Amino acid sequence: MEKKFQIFVSSTYEDLKGERDQVIKAILEMGHIPVGMEMFSAADEEQWKIIQRQIDESDYYVVIAAHKYGSIADDGISYTEKEYDYAVKKAVPALGFVLADGANWPANQMESSSEKRDALERFKSKIKSRIVNFWTTKDELHAKVSISLMKSMQTSPRIGWVRADTVNASPELVAELTRLSKENATLRAELEEASSLAEQNLDKEKVSTKSFEILRKNSVKIYIAKQGDTEWGEPRDGTLLEVFKALAPNLMVENTFKKIGADIAVFYGETRYRELAPVPTNLLSHWLADLAALNLIKPSSRKHAVSDKNEYWTLSEEGYELLKDIRRIQLEKGLVEQEAPES
């Protein structure tokens, strides 16, 4: 018979709403039952008893940690850490997901109190002493939670829940399954509402495909020769993502190797660039090879005259989709600059 597992999701709340939504979405997509602190009223002793009961009934426990320690209980420990300690004490398989060091994070979502920062670091060390994953974006967190839960379900199978019509169900079991079904329906409705709001407020994380993240974190040095220059001079700092943004618009059909170099020079603000090899051809070849390795560009298959010895490149389907996402977000944020017409 098919089992559904109850999974308790624990974290600070206000700073990790979007991340919690992604974790809940991952659990629902796997066909299981997410529960968490947002289902209960304000913090008090009665609520803590309810939370303990939910953890007791849960098959797995997931904790997400970033840069907030959270609300403190009367005993001086945050409710998130109390939930974690209780799950470990009850031998519920606990999966930790800690924001990676160096990951981008809003300053206003970090603890300002040195005491809370110290408590948070001690809590993170506690999480890292057991099964832990590190994440940088909501989408990455979604994927890692799904993979980790699947592995844990295989290596640490739990009792779980089954449909009442597949067992000799007692009235108590039927009542409990009915309650969980209602909770599941409520969570689905809340998730759909959250997803709708997220679509209206797209940001860079909505473009956080694997390729986007790889491009963003790979730095490059940009050398541009001006008209009359015989040496390259000092390089500019850039990324492969900027290189992609520079060359992608003119690759929607196709473009030559020579003109791609000019597009990069213009992107970095140099309009009086050297006509022959405005950027180093060896670096340009490496960048094109990197983008091709990520399946974002490919050699053009359009027919040209036999006498045309130019090397032509074009966007792949994946590259076209990534360009659309980037441009859409720039348009919604009003970040697309209007260019002057070419003479």
Score class of each variant (00 low, 15 high):
residue 212 F to R: 14
residue 213 E to D: 13
residue 213 E to V: 15
residue 214 I to Y: 11
residue 215 L to Q: 08
residue 215 L to N: 09
residue 215 L to A: 00
residue 216 R to A: 08
residue 218 N to A: 11
residue 219 S to F: 15
residue 222 I to A: 06
residue 222 I to R: 09
residue 222 I to D: 03
residue 222 I to N: 01
residue 223 Y to Q: 13
residue 227 Q to H: 03
residue 228 G to V: 10
residue 229 D to C: 08
residue 229 D to A: 09
residue 229 D to G: 04
residue 229 D to P: 06
residue 230 T to A: 12
residue 231 E to C: 04
residue 231 E to S: 05
residue 232 W to G: 07
residue 232 W to L: 09
residue 232 W to Y: 14
residue 236 R to Q: 11
residue 236 R to H: 08
residue 236 R to W: 01
residue 237 D to Q: 02
residue 238 G to R: 02
residue 238 G to I: 00
residue 239 T to F: 05
residue 240 L to S: 00
residue 240 L to A: 02
residue 241 L to H: 00
residue 243 V to A: 14
residue 244 F to M: 12
residue 244 F to N: 09
residue 245 K to G: 01
residue 247 L to W: 01
residue 248 A to Q: 12
residue 248 A to P: 10
residue 249 P to K: 05
residue 249 P to M: 11
residue 249 P to C: 14
residue 250 N to W: 08
residue 250 N to C: 03
residue 253 V to W: 02
residue 253 V to Y: 08
residue 254 E to A: 08
residue 255 N to Y: 07
residue 255 N to W: 08
residue 256 T to A: 02
residue 256 T to V: 03
residue 256 T to L: 01
residue 256 T to R: 03
residue 257 F to A: 04
residue 257 F to C: 03
residue 258 K to G: 07
residue 259 K to P: 03
residue 259 K to C: 09
residue 261 G to C: 12
residue 261 G to Q: 07
residue 263 D to S: 02
residue 263 D to H: 06
residue 264 I to S: 01
residue 264 I to W: 02
